[in-house]
């Protein structure tokens, strides 16, 4: 298995090697050692490739991922899997702010906790957090699913569009226009599938679903004199 040692190889060379390999069908899985909290590790992968990062990463790990599988055997800094298009990103430890922000697709699994703004403006990505998430998570989230096995912080789903939010634990507070919604059979089905894919030991029935009340979608003429 090819190994890239970040104490010997520059970040740019690491990413160029991975990006080159992701373009070929026969690429072997890569190991990255000594990441030492580096920024932008395994970014911009544009095709199928399996990458295992042996340690913790800094800002923007696995950003813009497409089709690749990136597994971080540590914690990730701010903006992990930002704007992911497809593929899978798994973080064994915690993730810092805005994990999975603006993601269009694929699956992001965080086995520890995620901090504030997890899934902000998500556009189709599925995010499964085994632990807790911080405040302002799923702010303006448009599409996709955010599954949280632990608790959610303040203002969950503020100004939410059509993303689905599933939380097993407590929610400190809901943001503007975010409400609890009925869990229908199709939601339990989606949830069961995501929990299985994310290796999460939880039952769909233990979760509550939150979504948009859709009251911010249109201007309300009765509020005109408040401006």
């Amino acid at each position: 298995m090819p190994t890239l040692d970040m104490s010997q190889v520059e970040l740019r060379e690491v990413n160029q090697t991975l990006q080159g390999a992701a373009g070929t069908q026969t690429a072997e899985p890569y190991d990255i050692i000594n990441p030492r909290g580096s920024h932008a590790v395994a970014c911009g992968l544009n095709g199928p490739l399996t990458v295992t990062v042996k340690g913790s990463t800094g800002y923007y790990c696995a950003g813009m991922n497409k089709d690749a599988t990136v597994h971080v055997e540590g914690s990730a800094g701010p903006g992990v899997a930002e704007n992911m298009m497809s593929g899978t990103v798994v973080i064994d430890g915690d993730a810092s702010q805005y994990a999975g922000a603006t993601g269009h697709g694929g699956l992001l699994v965080i086995k520890g906790n995620a901090s504030s703004r997890c899934g902000i403006s998500m556009k189709g990505i599925d995010i499964v957090v085994h632990g807790n998430i911080g405040h302002m998570s799923a702010f303006m989230a448009q599409k996709g699913n955010l599954v949280v096995l632990g608790d959610a912080g303040e203002a969950l789903g503020d100004s939410l569009y059509e993303a689905r939010l599933f939380v097993r634990g407590s929610v400190k507070s809901l943001g503007a226009d975010c409400i609890e919604k009925e869990m229908r059979p199709e939601h339990l089905e989606i949830l069961a599938d995501l929990l299985e894919k994310a290796g999460a030991d939880a039952k769909p029935e233990e979760f509550k679903r939150y979504g948009s009340a859709r009251k911010l979608y249109n201007f309300n003429i009765d509020h005109a004199d408040e401006y």
Partner: peptide, 22 residues
């Protein structure tokens, strides 16, 4: 400010690492 600054600390691989709450 960032994990990078810890990379050379003794025993960091087994340390408890967390983000302080707001």
């Amino acid at each position: 400010s960032e994990y990078r600054a810890f990379a050379d600390l003794p025993g960091i691989d087994t340390a408890r690492v967390w983000e302080p709450e707001p």
